[in-house]
């Protein structure tokens, strides 16, 4: 949906504006490009890890399937690291920026905005404080799980206790990413990261046929 539609009074055309700021775009890349995609990949990845190494009735595996699973896990690792690094080093500095003395527009300072209202303070003091640390468990855990699977493959079936530990770490990775994703979405709903250059996504002119 366009952000804004304005009817041009003279020519009878509609000008559709759709734009996004650089900061919003990076927040999208962090949250949806890396975070949400990682969460989606997690459900399939954990199921496949279980099916390949722990299921009592494993399906026959082909070399192609093994390669696919390895690429899938490596992709998950990249997504997890992409999410935490883009969050910590690109989006978070904008979030925690301190307003200069006398600043009147606190919308540009999300942490300050959340902390200034008793009804939203918890989104920072609990949500962001938890999210900023717990999210790092996701890449650490999934990197380990991917390494062990790539090195051992289906031989992991022969290491019952380690296999259980790897699956547990993968599950915690999913939970950690879920916590980070939930609080990220809610924080951005209450105090979105804004500002920076504006990027025009679309500026269509549609004839109304008047």
């Amino acid at each position: 949906m366009p952000d804004e539609a304005v009817e041009w009074p003279i020519s009878g055309k509609v000008i559709v504006f759709m734009e996004i700021t650089v900061r919003s775009l990076w927040t999208l890349i962090h949250g949806f490009g890396f975070g949400a995609l990682y969460l989606l990949a997690c459900s399939g990845g954990i199921l496949e890890l279980y099916r390949s190494t722990a299921s009592p009735a494993p399906t026959p595996s082909t070399p192609r399937h093994e390669i696919f699973l390895r690429v899938y896990l490596i992709t998950m690792v990249v997504l997890a690291w992409g999410a935490v690094l883009s969050g910590a080093y690109i989006v978070y500095p904008w979030y925690r920026a301190v307003p200069p003395p006398g600043a009147v527009n606190s919308l540009m300072y999300p942490q300050h905005l959340l902390m200034s209202n008793p009804s939203t303070i918890g989104w920072h003091s609990l949500g962001m404080e938890w999210k900023e640390h717990v999210s790092w468990l996701a890449p650490i855990s999934i990197t380990m799980a991917a390494y062990v699977f790539i090195r051992y493959g289906r031989d992991l079936r022969n290491h019952r206790q380690l296999r259980a530990a790897v699956l547990s770490f993968a599950l915690v990775s999913f939970v950690a990413a879920g916590v980070a994703g939930f609080f990220g979405a809610m924080i951005n709903k209450n105090a979105p990261v804004q500002g920076g250059h504006t990027i025009q996504l679309s500026q269509n002119m549609e004839a109304l046929g008047k």
Binding site: I140, S141, T143, M144, Y147, V148, R151, Y152, D155, L156, N158, H159, R160, Q161, L162, A165, V166, F169
Partner: peptide, 20 residues
Amino acid sequence: NTASPTSLTNGPAAAAVLAA
């Protein structure tokens, strides 16, 4: 561990798990 005779040693996996 109870690994089969042909399986890999579990040292590298244990190292990765413990380090994580």
